[in-house]
């Protein structure tokens, strides 16, 4: 457990000192969302209708954009070999790395999302559910993404390949995330969608680290 915290602390320190990662993800998120009013026109009705979908799709892409950093640098400088060789179960280490990845990329997205929701004229009824749904959904994105990031280590054109592997698996999170916010905006119950997102988080938390660990073992063989 102490080792796990050490690992998370190391990742966070690296992210803070190199600095640009979290900032880049949030900037990408903000910039791409801001493109939509230019693309579809500034009418409040249209923007309000698409706001939940736009925020979720862009959060998804922004989260994916940062995935190649998850294991790539460790893979290149050899520290991944040390992690794999350590006596701690590999899936715990993966869980630690994913937690750190979520803290540096998922959390800033959640902070930025309500602000962008205001810019997209989303009704205030949706804000709380948007934050709740993203708090449950973005860790799932990091977990699923870690599988893809581990699989493409050492592959040719890894970045493009990563999006092909990961985006189809992101679809369920997108569907229920958007549906929760849309329901809240229209004044319906949102319990079911939030519970399903919670179920995704539990299932992904249990299964994805195992798959990622298997993929990492192959990459470092």
């Amino acid at each position: 457990m102490g080792l796990l915290l050490d690992l998370i602390r190391r990742e966070l320190r690296l992210a803070l000192r190199q600095g640009s990662d979290s900032l880049m993800v949030v900037t990408f998120f903000v910039l791409t969302v801001i493109l939509f009013p230019f693309g579809v026109g500034p009418e409040p009705g249209v923007l309000e209708r698409i706001s939940a979908g736009v925020l979720w799709v862009m959060a998804l892409l922004a989260s994916m954009l940062s995935l190649d950093r998850l294991f790539q640098t460790d893979y290149e400088d050899g520290s991944l070999d040390l992690l794999v060789a350590s006596p701690v179960p590999l899936f715990l280490l993966v869980l630690g790395k994913v937690t750190a990845h979520w803290l540096t990329t998922g959390l800033p997205l959640i902070v930025a999302a309500p602000l962008l929701a205001v810019l997209l004229q989303m009704s205030p009824d949706g804000f709380l559910i948007l934050i709740a749904a993203m708090a449950l959904g973005t860790p799932v994105l990091s977990l699923i993404g870690s599988v893809g990031a581990a699989l493409v280590l050492g592959a040719r054109r890894g970045g493009v390949l990563l999006s092909l592997l990961v985006l189809p698996l992101y679809v369920p999170v997108l569907i229920f995330g958007v549906s929760a916010v849309d329901a809240a905006v229209q004044g319906f119950e949102t319990g079911a969608q939030i519970k399903i997102l919670g179920a995704f988080l539990l299932a992904a938390g249990a299964l994805c680290p195992l798959a990622t660990a298997a993929a990492l073992r192959q990459a470092t063989e």
């Binding site: 699989l151 050492g154 698996l169 798959a211 192959q218 990459a219």
Partner: peptide, 30 residues
């Protein structure tokens, strides 16, 4: 898209054995 991802991943490595193993993990996840 899962099929296409699998095919792309299997062929993305210089070492065919590594591609096959990565593809196997992906197939089980999918």
């Amino acid at each position: 898209f899962l099929y296409l991802g699998h095919m792309a991943l299997v062929n993305a490595f210089d070492d065919p054995g590594r591609g096959a193993k990565a593809g196997a993990v992906l197939a089980l996840v999918g």
